[in-house]
């Protein structure tokens, strides 16, 4: 039997693959890397692409799509920390900008949008008062 290594492909939201494999190809940042068991320890970023796994007793390769992340290789264990979202400096920056803007807007119209909850509470109070008044009238 060929040598195998343990491969974990995990993302923050769920585990994508966990098991033994004979060979693995991942799209590393500096080019594709092929990994056999007893590879020297290596850590690198990976680009969006497919990870191919050769599983023992299977002729076909297992394909897993990852949208980037980190690849950590140890002699017997390979871990792929996959991203669940498309990442990139620009993309992240855009998201941060958007978040910042929203925060600023929220700060600016403190009075307008914010107090939906407060208005709701006031409305409930007014309704309760009306009920009370109606009840008082009935009693008279």
């Amino acid at each position: 039997m060929a040598m195998t290594m343990h491969v974990d492909v995990v993302s923050a939201e769920r585990s994508l693959f966990s098991g033994l494999a004979e060979f693995l190809v991942a799209p590393a940042e500096m080019g594709e890397v092929g990994v056999y068991p007893r590879h020297t320890p290596l850590i690198t970023r990976i680009k969006p692409g497919t990870v191919r796994l050769k599983l023992p007793d299977h002729d076909e390769e297992e394909l897993i799509y990852v949208s980037g992340g980190l690849l950590e290789i140890q002699p017997q264990v390979v871990t792929i920390l996959a991203d669940t979202a498309l990442r990139g400096r620009d993309l992240d920056e855009a998201k941060a900008q958007e978040a910042k803007q929203r925060a600023e807007e929220a700060m600016r119209d403190r009075s307008a949008s914010m107090d939906y909850a407060k208005a709701q509470a006031e409305l409930a109070e007014a309704v309760a008062q009306l009920h009370a008044i109606q009840r008082l009238r009935k009693q008279k």
Partner: peptide, 9 residues
Amino acid sequence: MEKLIGPVK
């Protein structure tokens, strides 16, 4: 995760 990236960044 996608929604959290921006605010956390």
